[in-house]
Design a protein around this nucleic acid. Structure first.
Ligand SMILES: [Zn+2]
Ligand SMILES: [Zn+2]
Ligand SMILES: [Zn+2]
Ligand SMILES: [Zn+2]
Ligand SMILES: [Zn+2]
Ligand SMILES: [Zn+2]
Length: 346
DNA sequence: GAGTTTGAAACT
DNA sequence: CAGTTTCAAACTC
């Protein structure tokens, strides 16, 4: 989702992402996009009776056309987009949030589309198997789950560790393969000191001819509102009391979607730095490629935040700092304690 | 690979 | 709503 629709006018500056700029203005979060992978991960299905036109079908639920699937009588194809869209509408009328995987058109939420907006209802799996979608998503069960005998609440054990499906090991072989270039880009809108809206495009790349690089482009845009959707940042972002103005690096924003789960978004600068420090590949291997925050978990409460923090080291991204959940309302700001870092220093 | 189990999605 | 059926994946053997 680029801002190509807007007439881009102004300057194009280059600067290092490692130099935190950004004033304490409102931060808008775009999505990370891996140029080599489709957002949300490619899905495949094996549907036999649904024609891949119901939410039973993972591909359809994820808003993807069936590709490399082994489905039968599949109608979830590009050349039948009319039928697809018709079904989508029908399902949307049944459940307004059915395809709400995106927030404000930008952020792909942790869960799969159309699933689990209200938590799981597991009865026999103790939420310890992939039958449980909370577990499958790698998150603890939360307030809205109605599960029985749940062992996925981070109380009596570590956070869920759904074993990665076989097929494409995160880091395996291919040592001779040329370092494929990977690019991570993301956009954000913010206001400059003059109050004008700007669109910032950040790019971090690794591999390829260049080793690692990062750049930033700044464009003036008419109004970000149209592009940001309902979750546009308030004109006046409520700053948590006593927070320093320069949280850019440590700041994380939590969106409390209508109901169930709180998704944690890392700030742009943080992710960009992380990409440079540990490498984009490592991030992808750790499931952070698209800011899939489920990889780190979700916090439904202050109490759950520490568990979230505890997962950071396990992700291999460094020793986590303290994550503080300052409040839990519609919008929450998580920040590191001053001087602490999520990622171990270089 | 066949058969079972599971819980979301769909249906009544 | 609740109860039932359908469905495709997760799981077991
Ligand atoms: Zn399908
Ligand atoms: Zn498919
Ligand atoms: Zn299909
Ligand atoms: Zn569950
Ligand atoms: Zn759950
Ligand atoms: Zn549970």
């Amino acid at each position: 989702m680029s801002y190509s629709g807007h007439s881009i006018v102004t300057d194009t500056s280059q600067q290092s992402l490692l130099v935190p700029e950004m004033p304490g203005d409102a931060v808008k979060l775009g999505d990370w996009r891996d140029s080599t992978t489709s957002t949300g991960g490619p899905k495949t299905c094996n549907c036999k009776k649904s024609k891949c036109l119901k939410l039973y079908c993972d591909c359809f639920a994820a808003g993807q056309s069936c590709t490399n699937c082994t489905c039968q009588n599949c109608s979830n194809t590009a050349d039948q987009k009319d039928a697809v869209e018709e079904m989508r509408e029908q399902i949307r009328s049944r459940n307004l949030h059915a395809f709400d995987e995106k927030i404000g058109k930008h952020y792909v939420a942790a869960g799969d589309a159309g699933k689990q907006q209200g938590g799981c209802n597991c009865k026999k799996s103790h939420c310890r198997k992939k039958y449980c979608e909370c577990f499958q998503a790698g998150v603890n069960c939360g307030q809205h789950c109605k599960c029985e005998g749940c062992h996925n609440r981070g109380e009596h054990g570590p956070p869920p560790k759904p074993k990665a499906p076989p097929g494409m090991p995160a880091v395996k072989a291919v040592p001779e393969a040329k370092p494929a270039e990977r690019k991570l880009t993301r956009q954000r809108s913010m206001r400059d000191s003059a109050g004008r809206w700007q669109s910032h495009t950040y790019t971090a790349s690794i591999g390829g001819t260049e080793r690692e690089s990062a750049s930033q482009q700044t464009h003036h845009i008419p109004h970000p509102e149209s592009a940001m959707g309902s979750l546009s940042v308030d004109e006046e972002e409520p700053c948590s009391p006593g927070s320093p103005s320069s949280l850019s690096e440590a700041e994380m924003t939590v969106r409390h979607a209508s109901a169930p789960m709180v998704h944690i978004l890392f700030s742009l600068n943080f992710m960009a730095e992380l990409a440079l420090k540990v490498g984009a590949q490592k991030m992808l291997d750790c499931g952070l490629g698209y800011m899939e925050t489920a990889a780190l978990g979700s916090a439904d409460s202050d109490e759950a935040a520490p568990a979230l923090q505890a997962r950071l080291p396990a992700s291999g991204l460094g020793a986590g700092g303290s994550v503080i959940c300052t409040n839990l309302q519609d919008r929450v700001t998580l920040q590191l304690k001053p001087g602490q870092q999520l990622c171990a220093p270089l």
